[in-house]
Design a binder for these strands. Structure first.
Length: 383
DNA sequence: CTTCTATTTCCTGCTT
DNA sequence: TAAGCAGGAAATAGAA
């Protein structure tokens, strides 16, 4: 069962990075804690990092002693950020990434004021070099060192962002971009399926007909033609027309997922769930508010502007040309039981994330600010 | 291999 | 009448 609420039960990692109100624990105690194996066996031991020995033991001050607090937190999932795209990072992911980057660069825990990076991935992505430098500044750290670290962190961040962009460009509309007003015309399914995106380098979308042949052993019993077959009595939009009712009596598709629709030639992690997919659409200016938009962001209420387009995107991501809004909405309704989604009875095409729904936090729902700024620019250009 | 979750497909009945 | 909604039933893929 997916428990979307779980992340909120864990403490904010950055809270742990602030120095404790009581006197800081002695370093020796921390070593003893590690020796007892209370946390280091789970989270690793920073002190096992050989680079640490090259640094002197600084005084514990009010900066931060993040590693000490980090390793004592049992709920910490230090690798989560690796399996998300940057814009999906929460505050913990950002700091975890920074910790990792610091370790890779051979820095000590005193070189970076981690508490200044208690920000989500969207905010991090939007930061300029100078913004990072500003947050990197600390009275106990030499300014030139801060500048050097800030530069390295900035480069590291953009190296990752570029890699995400490169990999996301694998998916493109072959038949033309239905959202042509967006630039570039990339169907960024990776951002909608972020758990899979890191594995795309060895993955190409299946050609259904190729799959049919390659999997012939499995298909010997498949008397129901797939969507790619010319005998299929269903249109790509799942509609049934005219005398197709007669064909349906002969070629009635059985319920359930079509055989061979899975991907068998490679191993991928679980794809995003329907609620996560919706959340990702809503947080992406390429799809929100053009095909789906927030009705009331504070309540998690959203509206399908083009339900069929959303369903097609879902189908595209799942390599299922037969996906329809009717079927997609059925998948949505299964999430009522767990309060991941909640129905909004009065309005059509309006749904709501429940209290166990995914994190949909954004400071700019429907990208209104961006639009306003664009309008301002246009007004300045064409008064 | 079994069990479980998350769909996918089809369907009936109801509401707008 | 069409579109959307609610939810049962059966089936599958993939993960545990």
């Amino acid at each position: 069962m997916i428990d979307y609420a779980r992340p909120y039960e864990t403490p904010n990692m950055c809270d742990l990075y602030y120095p404790p109100a009581s006197p800081a624990p002695a370093r020796l105690d921390d070593f003893q804690v590690f020796k007892k194996g209370t946390a280091s066996h789970i989270y690793g031991n920073y002190y096992s990092n050989p680079t640490y020995d090259t640094y002197g033991e600084p005084e514990l001050d009010n900066t931060v002693n993040i590693y000490h607090n980090l390793v004592s937190c049992r709920e910490y999932h230090r690798d989560d950020w690796k399996y998300k795209i940057v814009i999906d990072w929460n505050e913990n992911d950002t700091v975890s990434w920074l910790v990792d980057a610091a370790q890779c660069m051979g820095l000590s825990e005193y070189d970076i004021p981690f508490q200044n990076f208690n920000i989500n991935g969207i905010e991090l992505r939007n930061m300029k070099r100078e913004d990072i430098l500003q947050r990197m500044a600390h009275p106990n750290i030499d300014p030139s060192t801060s500048r050097r670290i800030a530069d390295s962190i900035f480069e590291k961040l953009h190296s990752r962002l570029n890699e995400e962009l490169r990999q996301s460009s694998i998916f493109r509309y072959a038949e033309g971009d239905p959202y042509a007003h967006h630039e570039p015309t990339v169907l960024d399914l990776d951002s909608l399926d972020h758990k899979n995106r890191l594995y795309h380098s060895d993955y190409t979308p299946n050609d259904a007909t190729l799959l049919h042949h390659a999997d012939s052993s499995d298909d010997t019993e498949d008397v129901f033609p797939s969507a790619s077959s010319p005998d299929c009595s269903y249109g790509s939009d799942g509609s049934k027309s005219g005398d197709e009712d007669d064909k349906r009596k002969i070629f009635k598709r059985p319920p359930g997922r079509p055989k061979g629709s899975g991907r068998k030639t490679f191993k991928r992690p679980r794809s995003v769930s329907v609620p996560e997919f919706l959340r990702n659409l809503l947080l992406d200016s390429q799809y929100c508010p053009s095909i789906i938009k927030w009705e009331d962001h504070t309540q998690g209420k959203f509206r399908f502007v083009k339900p069929d387009e959303v369903a097609k995107l879902w189908g595209k991501m799942k390599q299922n040309d037969n996906m329809t809004f009717e079927k997609f909405s059925r998948a949505m309704r299964y999430h009522y039981r767990q309060s991941v989604l909640v129905s909004v009875p009065t309005a059509r095409l309006v749904y709501q994330f429940g209290h166990k729904g995914p994190d949909f936090k954004t400071d700019n729902p429907n990208f209104i600010k961006v639009k306003t700024e664009l309008m301002d620019i246009k007004e300045m250009a064409y008064p």
